[in-house]
Simulated assay, not measured.
Amino acid sequence: MNAIPQAIPEVMLLEPQVHGDERGFFFESFNQHRFEEMVGAPIAFVQDSHSRSARNVLRGLHYQIRNPQGKLVRVITGSVFDVAVDLRRSSSTFGRWVGNVLSAGNKRQMWIPPGFAHGFLALSDMAEFVYKSTDYYFPEHERCIAWNDPQLGIPWPLDGLPLLSARDQHGNPFASAEIYD
Rank of each mutant, 00 (worst) to 15 (best):
M1E: 07
I4M: 06
I4A: 07
Q6K: 13
Q6F: 04
A7P: 15
E10W: 07
V11I: 15
M12G: 03
L13Y: 01
L14S: 02
Q17C: 10
G20R: 15
E22I: 13
R23Q: 11
R23H: 11
G24H: 05
F26W: 09
F26T: 10
S29F: 00
H33W: 09
R34E: 10
M38E: 13
M38R: 13
G40Y: 04
F45W: 02
D48F: 00
H50A: 03
S53T: 01
S53N: 04
A54V: 12
A54E: 15
R55V: 13
R55W: 06
L58G: 03
L58M: 05
G60A: 09
L61D: 06
H62E: 04
Q64Y: 02
R66A: 14
Q69I: 06
S79F: 01
S79E: 08
F81C: 05
V83C: 08
D86E: 09
L87R: 07
R88I: 08
R88G: 09
R88C: 10
S91P: 03
S91I: 06
S92Q: 13
F94G: 06
F94S: 13
G99M: 08
G99F: 05
G99D: 04
V101M: 07
V101T: 10
L102N: 02
A104C: 08
A104I: 14
G105Q: 12
G105D: 15
N106V: 01
M110T: 08
M110R: 03
W111T: 00
W111K: 00
I112K: 01
I112G: 00
P113L: 03
P114E: 11
H118S: 05
G119R: 02
A122S: 14
L123W: 04
D125R: 11
D125L: 12
A127G: 06
A127W: 06
E128F: 02
V130R: 06
Y131A: 00
Y137M: 10
F138E: 15
F138G: 12
P139D: 05
E140K: 14
E140T: 11
H141E: 11
C144F: 08
C144P: 00
A146T: 07
A146I: 03
A146C: 13
P150F: 13
Q151R: 14
G153P: 07
I154N: 12
W156K: 08
W156E: 06
P157G: 10
L158T: 09
L158P: 07
D159R: 12
L161W: 14
P162T: 13
S165P: 00
S165H: 06
S165C: 05
D168P: 01
D168W: 02
Q169K: 11
Q169C: 13
N172T: 12
P173A: 15
F174Y: 06
A175N: 11
A175D: 12
A175H: 12
S176E: 12
A177I: 08
Y180G: 10
Y180S: 15
D181H: 14
